[in-house]
Deep mutational scan, measured.
Amino acid sequence: IINNLKLIREKKKISQSELAALLEVSRQTINGIEKNKYNPSLQLALKIAYYLNTPLEDIFQW
């Protein structure tokens, strides 16, 4: 999986903590996703895309 979450999140000036709060997950979860240590569920990936107002395929590429 190619993961552009960190790049997109930083472009939008959103911290890991802010995104985690919006998604109701821990900051460690966001960190793990960004470091490719954790693959989000489809539901979480869709929520990330929604809150970042970015197409899912721009954030994650399988």
Rank of each mutant, 00 (worst) to 15 (best):
I2W: 12
N3P: 03
N3Q: 05
N3K: 02
N4C: 09
L5T: 02
L5A: 02
K6T: 07
K6P: 04
K6W: 05
K6N: 04
L7S: 14
L7C: 13
I8Q: 05
R9T: 02
R9D: 01
K11F: 09
K12E: 07
K13L: 10
K13W: 06
K13Y: 09
I14N: 01
I14R: 04
I14Q: 04
I14T: 05
I14D: 01
I14V: 10
S15M: 05
S15V: 04
S15A: 07
S15I: 04
Q16G: 04
Q16H: 04
Q16Y: 04
Q16A: 09
S17A: 14
E18D: 11
E18R: 13
L19F: 07
L19G: 00
L19M: 05
A20Q: 03
A21P: 01
A21Q: 10
A21D: 13
L22G: 13
L22H: 13
L23I: 11
E24M: 13
V25Q: 03
V25F: 03
S26Y: 04
S26T: 10
R27E: 15
R27V: 15
Q28I: 11
T29F: 14
T29P: 01
T29I: 15
N31Q: 13
G32Y: 15
G32I: 10
G32K: 14
G32C: 15
I33Q: 00
I33C: 03
E34Y: 02
E34V: 03
E34G: 03
E34I: 03
K35E: 15
K35P: 01
K35Y: 08
N36E: 08
N36T: 06
K37E: 14
K37I: 13
N39F: 15
N39K: 15
P40T: 05
P40I: 10
P40Y: 04
S41T: 12
S41V: 04
L42P: 07
L42V: 08
L42A: 06
L42R: 10
Q43P: 12
Q43H: 13
Q43G: 12
L44Q: 06
L44N: 04
K47M: 09
I48C: 04
I48Q: 00
I48T: 03
I48A: 04
A49H: 03
A49Y: 02
Y50L: 11
Y51L: 10
Y51F: 13
L52G: 02
L52Q: 00
L52A: 01
L52V: 03
N53M: 08
N53V: 06
T54H: 05
T54W: 05
T54L: 05
T54D: 02
P55C: 06
L56T: 04
L56E: 02
E57Y: 10
E57M: 09
D58I: 07
D58L: 12
F60Q: 01
F60M: 02
F60H: 01
Q61A: 10
Q61C: 11
Q61L: 08
Q61W: 12
W62S: 08
W62F: 13
W62G: 09
